[in-house]
Design a binder for these strands. Structure first.
Lengths: 140, 140
DNA sequence: CTTCCTGCAAAGCATTTGCATCCAT
DNA sequence: ATGGATGCAAATGCTTTGCAGGAAG
């Protein structure tokens, strides 16, 4: 993804596109799965021309999450993982072996959700589905 | 739930039903929603006739979770929550205001899950749905 | 006796915060 | 100048672990 597009994502949500924030976003956009704050930080640190503090990575991820730019998952019990949002609404397929995460971009569950929620007096505002299993590669 | 039944749940999974483990289980069975390790511990401590260490609560919850007696959720970002499993397979309704958790005991999503997973080459082994919204009480 | 369990206190670790400095407007 | 952003280090808070004493069979 071009830097221009990444910058646009920030500006759109009223986030000042600082060097560090763009760096975090760029790093996330290279990651097909999800990554922890520390992982992203280490990768950026490894490049001598990019300096950034771990606290800034945390602050940035929290901000991006709050504004809907990144997802925050917590499958690995003790550490939170982040990934760039692809679309507004989607679900996840998780591979139990290699921990690959596939984002599903189709969701036709709307009706079912309303029905189930209504049955318990709930007004549903969001839903999230996670399917765990083995990916094609790990199956073979 | 009777103590006998609780004890049975432990014995069935080859867990020695010690006083502390039963206490944790009994405390969990009184909790309609989910609770953190510290919350359960404080409640048990409050009763002068029950002594238990926080570490033991953590160890017990981890064990029970591993053996499928309790669920471990992590909605509240920083603290893990536990709740007694009702059935083998179920989903959750979460109230965004009061944090009540309702366990759905019906799941008619089987076909959908297989279809979606298969489309991406996955062999699904488990799935989890969480629906967030406002419960009847918080809506009014 | 031997094995597993528990309590306490001491780590461990991810995450947050205080504060001085820096940067952009 | 002024308000936000950052880096570093210190603090926080949940969770785990080491170890000595205990309970159970």
């Amino acid at each position: 993804m071009s830097t221009a597009t990444l910058e646009q994502r920030l500006v759109e949500r009223d986030i000042r596109p600082t060097r560090q924030r763009l760096a975090v976003l760029r790093e996330l956009s290279k990651e097909p799965n999800d990554a922890t704050a520390a992982t992203l930080w280490r990768r950026m640190r490894a490049r001598t021309n990019e300096t950034i503090g771990l606290a800034t990575v945390y602050r940035t991820l929290a901000l991006l999450n709050e504004r809907g730019v990144v997802d925050s998952l917590s499958h690995h019990a003790n550490e939170r993982c982040y990934r760039l949002c692809k679309d507004a609404h989607h679900h996840h397929l998780l591979c139990e072996r290699c921990h690959r995460v596939v984002e599903l971009d189709d969701c036709d569950l709307g009706g079912w959700v309303e029905k189930v929620a209504g049955r318990h007096g709930f007004a549903a505002s969001a839903h999230e589905v996670e399917i765990a299993g083995l990916c094609a590669e790990c199956r073979s």
